Simulated scan of single mutants.
Amino acid sequence: MALTGRRQFLGGLLAAGLVPKPTWADAGSPAFLSAAATKGGSYVLCGIDAGLNVVFQLPLPDRGHAAAGHPSRPEAVAFARRPGTFAVVIDCVTGRQTAVLNAPEGRHFYGHGAFSADGSLLYTTENDFEAGRGRVGVWDAASGYARIGEWDSGGIGPHDIKRLPNSDILVVANGGIDTHPDTGRTKLNLPTMRPNLAYIDQGVVVETAELSRDMHKNSIRHLAVSGDGTVVFGMQWQGDDTPPPLVGLHRMGGAITLPHGTDETARAMDGYIGSIAFAENGKAIAVTSPRGGRIQVFDPETLGLSYTKTSADVCGVAPSGRQFITTSGTGEIERLGQYADANPRHLPLMFDNHLVSL
């Protein structure tokens, strides 16, 4: 049975209460999610399996950025590109949109979110643009995604958000950049920006970690977390001079660690990290730059550069065992690692910024 027909069949059985609750296997067993644009100009959320096949394309109302997959049911939240004010909840078995999250008045989303460990809550990064302060929205995923609260993000311009393993402690990448919808994506506070990592436990900021003052224009944007709770983050340099290191490591209670690489490492990425990922065994870190058209792989023990590759408009990256999967705006999807595919796949899609593991 074709996947579309299978979705309709399962949807009918579910409505009649005749089958067990669906799982991600019922949605085609996707391993990853990615927003994309089609050649016809429409926007979709794609499910991609471990063999790099697109197992579903579900419509989005506008351009997407990242997504969050529910930890136990085949449901995804797709976030609009910053400074979007909507996110949509999609049943990935039936393809039906089941809820819409609208940012409260005076707020916009930053394109990222994370579920609690049990999947009952969704956390979203947001900008309170009149106050010039970051917020974390709290939504009840068990009750139709009603908004039930919000917390201080611990800084300005929160972008990515992740949950530490085996806990409900959140880590937020506060990029430090103040923006306002009246001025679009204009950066309003570059001389005074102070990016940080903030750790939040049940709404309380329990720890922050900042870069040194000479690196205060290095906006912390994207995060990945290893199984032991080590956080790796990618940055985007807002200065006019040669960019400093763009990758850092941190663990709660410790100090930020940066690589001792050459200026060329960051210059090759055009001062811009678009996505970041930890290999599942924690032995490698991959970062991408669509501006630099390059992929770099680092050793997490030394933060030394171990591999680099050119790839036009590459941005999405996610772990696949000891390897990585990357996607690009040119429709290219490939496996990166010791046993990498000889040839990448080219699909009639323009993948957006992030490839999210399920």
Rank of each mutant, 00 (worst) to 15 (best):
Gln202Arg: 14
Arg194Ser: 12
Pro181Ile: 00
Ala142Pro: 01
Met235Lys: 09
Arg82Asp: 06
Ser212Pro: 08
Val287Arg: 01
Gly229Arg: 12
Thr288Phe: 03
Asn353Trp: 02
Asn343Met: 06
Thr38Leu: 14
Lys283Ile: 03
Phe32Gly: 01
Asn343Asp: 05
His70Trp: 06
Ile273Val: 15
Tyr339Ala: 11
Gly176Ser: 13
Ala141Arg: 05
Tyr307Gly: 02
Thr179Phe: 02
Ala87Met: 11
Ala312Phe: 00
Gly248Lys: 02
Pro165Ser: 05
Gly293Asp: 15
Ser275Phe: 00
Gly12Ser: 14
His216Met: 09
Pro290Val: 10
Thr98Asp: 09
Leu13Met: 12
Thr183Leu: 14
Gly176Met: 09
Val100Tyr: 05
Ala25Ile: 00
Gln338Gly: 04
Gly227Ile: 02
Arg73Met: 12
Gln323Val: 00
Gly154Thr: 09
Asn166Met: 07
Asp270Arg: 10
Phe9Val: 06
Ala173Gly: 04
Gly5Ile: 08
Thr23Asn: 08
Glu264Gly: 03
Glu126His: 11
Arg322Pro: 00
Ile90Asn: 10
Ser219His: 04
Pro319Met: 06
Pro245Arg: 05
Gly337Gln: 09
His65Gly: 00
Val19Ala: 13
Leu122His: 02
Pro61Ala: 10
Arg7Lys: 08
Glu301Cys: 02
His112Cys: 08
Leu249Gly: 01
Ile333Asp: 05
Ile273Trp: 04
Pro83Asp: 14
Ala268Phe: 01
Pro191Glu: 13
Asp160Cys: 04
Ala31Tyr: 05
Gly84Ile: 06
Ala16Gln: 15
Glu126Val: 08
Pro181His: 01
Ile48Leu: 06
Asp26Glu: 12
Gly292Trp: 02
Asn166Phe: 06
Gly11Val: 05
Pro300Asp: 11
Leu52Ile: 06
Ala279Glu: 11
Met1Ile: 09
